[in-house]
Amino acid sequence: MALPKLAVYKFASCDGCQLSILDVEDLLLDIASVVHIANFPEASREVIEGPYDLTLVEGSITTPHDAERIHEVRRQSKFLVTIGACATAGGIQALKNWKDTDLFTSTVYAHPEYLDTLETSTPVKNHVEVNFELRGCPVDKMALVEVVAAFVQGRRPNIPEYSVCVECKRQGTPCVMVSHGTPCLGPVTQAGCGALCPSYNRGCYGCFGPMESPNTEMLAAAWQRLGVSHRGLVDAFRGFNAYAEPFRITSDHHEALAVAKGE
């Protein structure tokens, strides 16, 4: 039987999530034995035409050309998985959604007329149907292996939707908010990194985006009791998953409060 055909596409991104495929050093050749890597330009010159059984999409949609291209990718893909914060939430470049694009462009480039860019950076799901989303900035490489394995085995990937707090408790990492008053986004952030930052004595900064039922206002109030200003809350929620709805609503709310209070 022919192996399922895998394609990897890139939109606006840093390449880190697709690089995770090459970072599973021990398993890379095993993966290549269960799927046919048919279109993965970062790794191979060979391009085998679609349609593809499994497509991984990295990156957000930021240009008129990419807004068209994603539809073609969807047409070529039977099962489309978005990987990483850019593809699932717009990424850090979604910070431009709160700014004037013309001003932005002229800050970086001498000739804005050479560029063709949209006003916004948006997740892939805003443009086409997505079959599964794998979060993270970057994605966890073993989670990516799980997505490919689950696809090959015809089951749903086993990816947690609970919060980072659960991972800390499970690992026995003391709560950084409780034990040393360090503001942490862990309570509202989806697990998946292994609660890395708290294990390094720092607060979670939200790489995996909002967990399934985040109580962001409750957490914001707890941060304020630790002395964080409204503006500080805007910074925190407006990070790598800034445009994910629960985080977006919270940062907009506190931005309005910051303005009202003259922070």
């Binding site: 990424g91 850090i92 001003l103 800050t107 970086v108 950076s121």
Partner: peptide
């Protein structure tokens, strides 16, 4: 033709620590 991401622009106003 990498889509531009405007890092230098959106870093304005962010804390140094980020």
């Amino acid at each position: 033709f990498e889509p531009p991401r405007f890092y230098e622009a959106f870093m304005e106003g962010r804390p140094f620590s980020e």
